[in-house]
Computed example of a mutant assay.
Amino acid sequence: MLPNRQFLHVGPERENKVQDHPVSTGVPTDPKLPVHDAATIRQMAVTAPDDIELFEVMGAVPLDDSMARYLERLAAVVVPAAGRSGAMPVWYAARIASMDAVAAVLGRIHCRRNAGVDVRCFRIDGGSSYRIAFGDKSVKFRVANDRVERTLKFLPAIEPALLARIFCLHDDDVMLDVGANIGIYSVLAAACGARCVSVEPFPVNIVELRHNIEANELTDRIKVVEKAVGKAAETGRMAYSRDIAGIGAQNIQSSDRFRHGKKRPEISVKIETVDNLIERGEIPAPTFIKIDVDGDEANVFAGMEDLMRAAPPRLLMVETTPDKPTAFKIQFDLETSGFRRVPGDQDKNMYFELEAES
């Protein structure tokens, strides 16, 4: 029995508590998605063997405000307090504790509150694909391996602040997705109506990226750039850890050639600058930039100085290594160029908004 649970009504008493929190029965527009009525959902929640199982049950059904509040209170008890001091969100503490089902539900609640969208993830096509439903839209992705499946299954728990911002994009937005990987965020942005430029140089990722774009019939809204972007147009060497789609840690910096004392495999990649791509008319100027390049972010910024000076995006997200000089410099440069840092999700993800001119 966990402490401080007098308000939660667990075990045999949970039924009364769940009945006090009726679940909305909004029917998804996609007929391929499972639909449950309120009675079925309530019964699923009541019969869940324990609290963690309850989060797994609620992970794929609609939530209303009262059930969301109930699950947040429950999470505050079941997620270990260790490491949850200060400003660390409970959903992130749940991820650290490998409580993915809890983190995913809390990530959904974050998206719901900050973007007005409830996002749910379903295995379809006999497990070979996942469908991501949000609002009245849905997209699907091929499950290339176990790592991709885990990412898709618990997508709301990974970067909920990024999801919330993507769900607020419109048809007049252009997203530049630097380090697009298999295209999860590019596809979601395009499904919201935005145009998207997906920059991805790693061959196995490109295969999955193009498949996912075509499977969702978004080839007219997403342009794939099969290159890296950096500070100059050149040919470089990319080190990587594993030749598997969806795996990160591909890096163009020479300082990251070794991992655990062993030299990493490398491939040759073409590198271009964002400024050159825009100047030649190959890509439009973006309104939203996401940068996830595993340590090469300073070079990406060096190659888009003209853009940041002449037509800066209104929103920018960059993944960095926290408390490193590069992260401090990026934040300083952006904040002295008219951007302000805004709340996000993980410490490594920095979010910035362009401040309105007075």
Rank of each mutant, 00 (worst) to 15 (best):
A190H: 11
N205Q: 09
I166D: 10
N181A: 10
A194Y: 14
V199A: 10
M175Q: 08
I166G: 03
V204Y: 06
I182D: 07
G193C: 13
V187C: 14
A190D: 07
L163W: 12
V199E: 10
A190R: 07
A194W: 11
V204G: 02
E200G: 01
V199I: 14
D171K: 13
A190V: 09
A164N: 09
D177C: 02
A190C: 04
A180H: 05
G183N: 10
D177N: 05
S198F: 13
G179V: 02
Y185I: 06
C196A: 15
G193Y: 14
G183A: 04
C196P: 07
V178N: 02
L163D: 10
V204C: 11
Y185F: 15
I166P: 05
F202K: 00
R165Q: 07
N181Y: 03
L176V: 04
A164I: 12
V174H: 01
V199T: 05
Y185E: 03
A194L: 14
M175S: 05
G183K: 06
E200C: 10
G193E: 14
E200F: 13
N181V: 11
V197C: 11
D177Y: 00
V187R: 00
L163N: 07
V197G: 08
D171I: 02
Y185K: 05
D173F: 05
R165L: 01
N205V: 05
G179L: 01
I166S: 00
L188G: 15
L169V: 04
F202T: 01
S198H: 09
I184E: 07
R195Y: 13
S198A: 15
F202S: 01
V174S: 00
V199F: 06
M175C: 04
S198N: 08
V178M: 04
A190I: 10
G179R: 06
L163V: 07
V204D: 03
A194F: 11
A180M: 00
D173T: 04
F202H: 04
G193V: 15
L169K: 03
L188Y: 13
L163S: 06
D171H: 11
V197M: 14
V178D: 03
L176E: 00
H170P: 00
S198C: 15
C192W: 07
I182A: 06
I184F: 12
